[in-house]
């Protein structure tokens, strides 16, 4: 039952619907059911937000540490260094997002040119 198991035009779409749509929207729908019962100011929501935030932070870390495409050609220390420098500048400039992104890009590209 792999992606290429059945030679019909509709099979890849069925595969995407079951393995892609069902496997993601089921969690979103569950969130609606649960979220409808929680008050906006409830303490439980602080906990839920903390869990969601830590999850997204883990996604960020994996994007930097196990990248694909051209970013994989930069060494790990350079990737982490560029992001850390950018985030440091973002904090120092009182949360100026563009300044942070600009510095991260500059460090990464200069580093790639030199290595």
């Amino acid at each position: 039952m792999t992606f290429e198991a059945i030679d019909a035009w509709w099979w890849p779409y069925l595969f995407i619907i079951v393995a892609g749509w069902l496997a993601t929207d089921a969690w979103r729908f569950l969130g609606v059911v649960l979220g409808g019962r929680i008050s906006e100011t409830s303490e439980a929501l602080v906990f839920v937000r903390a869990v969601a935030t830590a999850l997204v932070a883990a996604v960020i870390a994996s994007l930097v540490l196990t990248p694909n495409g051209g970013l994989a050609e930069a060494p790990a220390w350079l990737r982490v260094g560029a992001v850390a420098a950018g985030f440091g500048v973002y904090l120092v400039t009182r949360q100026h997002m563009l300044a942070g992104i600009f510095v991260a890009e500059a460090v990464l590209l200069i580093g790639m040119a030199l290595t």
């Binding site: 993601t24 089921a26 979103r28 569950l30 979220g35 937000r49 869990v51 969601a52």
Partner: peptide, 24 residues
């Protein structure tokens, strides 16, 4: 298909707390 669906479902559990935080 079942293994693919399971892997995708695991990567998407995070959507539930995000939706729970947003809906209210």
């Amino acid at each position: 298909l079942p293994a693919a669906a399971f892997a995708v479902a695991l990567s998407s559990v995070r959507l539930t707390p995000m939706v729970v935080a947003l809906v209210p």
